[in-house]
């Protein structure tokens, strides 16, 4: 009786083939996925970068403003914060109170980035200092109230087209494609953050910039012959 040569045994071939599933362990080690025994909380509680990032989960399509209502809200936002040069500089609304203590403070973002409320020891720009809404010394650090920013995507542009933002201040971006599907990607130097917008669906993301820069906003979903004309800018200082 003969035995199969080493390397041609079925168990080895099957084991090697399913070995590709071992990548999951590498993902978990890189904090991209939860360990099976950790449950889902371990994955989501650290200010995750992408897993919960694009949108959703807070009600369905009908719970937010309609495209027409969103256009009106955006126009109101632009009129309120427009500067003489035509750019838009949103700020905190009068009477905004500090938010409740942030349960995530101390964890940092899943990507290893600081949140706005935690000074970034690696930034080197003094950029991550929390804005003035921080709580008094000696008390529990609080998270500043995010400033609301409206961004409407349409064929073929963004409104507002140029936003002036501050380093270290959290912004709650409220975005909607008001005609057909669009993207609202942010080019941030070494890489981009891609955001997909479906028509009439409100997408909210809280963003805190940790470095100043002139960042491109562009569409990443084909939206017709003027697709490449869709561009805006974020001037972060």
């Amino acid at each position: 009786m003969t035995t199969r040569p080493v390397g041609t045994r079925r168990a080895l071939v099957l084991g090697s083939s399913f070995g590709i599933l071992g990548l999951y362990g590498i993902w978990a080690a890189l904090d991209l996925a939860p360990w099976p025994w950790a449950g889902t909380d371990g994955h989501g509680g650290h200010g995750s970068e992408g897993g919960h990032g694009a949108a959703g989960g807070h009600g369905g399509v009908g719970g937010g403003p309609s495209p027409e209502e969103f256009r009106a809200l955006t126009r109101e936002f632009v009129l309120r914060y427009r500067l003489a040069d035509g750019t838009v500089r949103p700020g905190p609304a009068p009477g905004d109170a500090p938010a409740a203590p942030d349960p995530h403070v101390g964890h940092g973002a899943a990507s290893g980035l600081p949140t706005a409320a935690v000074p970034d020891p690696h930034a080197g720009h003094g950029s991550a200092a929390a804005p003035a809404e921080a709580a008094p010394a000696g008390s529990t650090p609080t998270r500043p109230v995010p400033v609301e920013v409206y961004l409407a995507a349409f064929q073929w542009g963004f409104e507002p087209q140029i936003l002036r933002l501050e380093v270290g201040r959290p912004y709650r971006f409220r975005m909607m494609a008001v005609d057909v599907a669009h993207g609202a990607a942010l080019q941030l130097g070494p890489a981009s953050r891609i955001i997909r917008l479906r028509p009439g669906v409100l997408v909210e993301q809280e963003l805190t910039f940790t470095r100043p820069g002139d960042y491109l906003v562009y569409c990443t979903v084909f939206c017709g012959p003027g697709h490449e004309l869709m561009a805006g800018r974020l001037l972060v200082a």
Binding site: S48, G56, H58, S111, L188, G189, R193
Partner: peptide, 21 residues
């Protein structure tokens, strides 16, 4: 994958979902 994660960590922005509808 590690390279892509490294790039993601280098982004000058932190982001969390705030919901939507």
């Amino acid at each position: 994958t590690w390279l892509a994660v490294h790039l993601m960590a280098a982004l000058p922005v932190s982001a969390t979902a705030a919901g939507g509808s």
